[in-house]
Write a protein that binds this DNA or RNA. Structure first.
Length: 477
DNA sequence: TTTTGAGTTGTTCGA
DNA sequence: GTCGAACAACTCAAA
């Protein structure tokens, strides 16, 4: 291979140098590498990164650029046009990328690959983001799974994920091509947490590794028991790092197994199954590209969602009067993140107690979450709503008071995000409306002024949701 | 080939 | 206070 041969490595959701199959293969080809990222919002349409994701992406790209000696070329526009033109401009001999599963990317990338092939330039693509290639996992009869447990036990665990690849030792970055650099300012989001470092996030490959180490050293030991406790520091918080591909699930999996010494060890087993859920969501989106928009269970197309602006606003702003719900929504605003257990509680509350369409909730999360991921977000909202494949039974309706008392037993999570309840005693911190007047006085809480009264009655709204669901099943038969 | 039993995350009610 | 049953319907794989 001659010195002048040039390979484009197109980064997308794999903003890392380690365990990057596309980058690794390009380096091994001997070509000099032109690393590229394309802001392809026009291709993405409504699934362009939300406000929170934009903040993360900008930081992460800056980190990746530093890892690549400042050679990352960031462009903007429809990727088909940009990549094909770039190949011509720099006379590239090949293009490398790791595959994505979003329906809009899948379709578009197939076209780009064909266009490149037609012009005599091969596109080499890899599975970099999932332990098990979503295109490969299938039942005996060749059709995709709809239920998690057989998917995980039979579909996945018989396949062995690859060993993580090292960062390419002989990376030759192209230093000749000089392209126009993009002004990143329009990417800045309007979220308040952008201003402060309170959230403690460190986007980028180093930050991802640090998050993993910190989890293994502290939260991991009691992960199996404490992962449902939003008041404790027991979860990995790796989700945004995994979404942007700053670390691969292969690297995480290997580190967890090495640390635990045994994949069957309780915390390791539990954590690996969570990675399994990430795989399952990808599997669902890959095979059911309508997942972000359409109920997978068609009977839900007739569900009588209401369109209650006031209720939606109260939910978004964290002023529903149910402390665990409000704390979750405020955590989202302040940190771009929400603990998994609380996500289920706020989602159940929106969909079941408030009878709002899950797609409204999914869109709000898409904009607000740093880890917003089309597969996880869509599959999880459909799971909570009961409309998905292998979804929670509809009659499983979370009681926000019970959930609060069970998983935030001392109210520390609620107090962290709802300062107006900081002085409420444990007994009433999840149900301030039950507190006697003298307790409210002592805590400095005037219900309806300092902190809202509940916007719906739990028992009534539960019955209303169950009735709505029963009507669906009756009419279906 | 058909049957059978199990399946992430819950709540309420009545004994 | 504790405990089991009921709350649907469907997928999947083992028997």
């Amino acid at each position: 291979m001659s010195e002048t041969q040039k390979a484009i490595v197109w980064f997308r959701q794999d903003l890392r140098v380690g365990d990057n199959p596309a980058l690794h293969a390009a380096a091994r080809s001997g070509a000099s590498i032109l690393p590229v990222f394309v802001h392809d919002d026009e291709d993405a349409g409504e699934w362009a990164p939300g406000s929170a994701s934009r903040w993360w992406l900008r930081k992460s790209l800056s980190e990746l650029n530093a890892s690549l000696d400042g050679a990352l070329h960031i462009l903007r526009g429809p990727a088909a046009k940009i990549i094909v033109q770039l190949v011509k401009d720099v006379d590239a001999s090949a293009v490398y990328w790791n595959r994505c599963i979003e329906p809009w990317r899948k379709a578009r990338d197939a076209e780009i690959k064909q266009a490149l092939l037609d012009s005599g330039v091969p596109a080499h693509t890899f599975n970099g983001s999932y332990l098990y290639d979503p295109a490969v996992v299938a039942k005996q009869d060749g059709t995709p799974y709809r239920v998690f447990t057989p998917f995980y036990r039979n579909g996945c665990q018989e396949l062995s994920p690859r060993e993580p690849l090292p960062a390419p030792p002989d990376l030759r970055i192209d230093t000749i091509s000089r392209l126009e650099r993009l002004d990143e300012k329009p990417l800045l989001p309007a979220f308040p947490w952008f201003e402060s470092e309170e959230h403690g996030w460190q986007p980028g490959e180093d930050g991802a590794r640090a998050a993993l180490s910190s989890f293994l050293e502290s939260g991991f030991e009691n992960y199996a028991e404490d992962r449902d406790r939003p008041d404790l520091d027991a979860v990995s918080r790796l989700s945004p790092h995994l979404h942007f591909g700053e670390i691969s699930p292969h690297q995480v999996r290997q580190a967890v197994i090495e640390h635990a010494g045994d994949p069957e060890q309780a915390s390791a087993d539990k954590f690996l199954s969570e990675l399994g859920w990430r795989e399952f969501s990808a599997h669902l989106l890959y095979h059911w590209p309508e997942l972000p928009h359409d109920n997978l269970q068609k009977k839900f197309d007739r569900f009588p969602w209401t369109d209650d602006e006031d209720a939606r606003k109260a939910w978004q702003d964290g002023v529903t009067g149910y402390p665990i719900v409000d704390a979750g929504m405020r955590q989202l605003w302040r940190t771009g993140y929400m603990h998994n257990r609380v996500r289920m509680v706020v989602a159940s509350f929106l969909v079941k107690n408030l009878l709002q369409d899950w797609r409204f909730g999914a869109a709000f999360f898409w904009n607000g979450l740093l880890d917003a991921d089309l597969a996880n977000n869509s599959a999880s909202w459909q799971w909570v709503a009961g409309s998905g494949a292998d979804a929670a039974p509809y009659f499983r309706i979370f009681n926000p008071v019970t959930q609060g008392q069970k998983f935030d037993p001392n109210g520390n999570y609620v107090r962290r995000y709802i300062p107006e309840l900081a002085r409420m005693p444990d007994k009433f911190v999840h149900c301030p409306w039950d507190a006697p007047d003298h307790v409210l006085d002592a805590a400095g809480v005037r219900l309806g002024k300092d902190y809202p009264r509940p916007i719906v009655d739990l028992k009534e709204s539960r019955t209303r949701a169950l009735d709505a669901y029963n009507e669906l099943t009756q009419r279906a038969s």
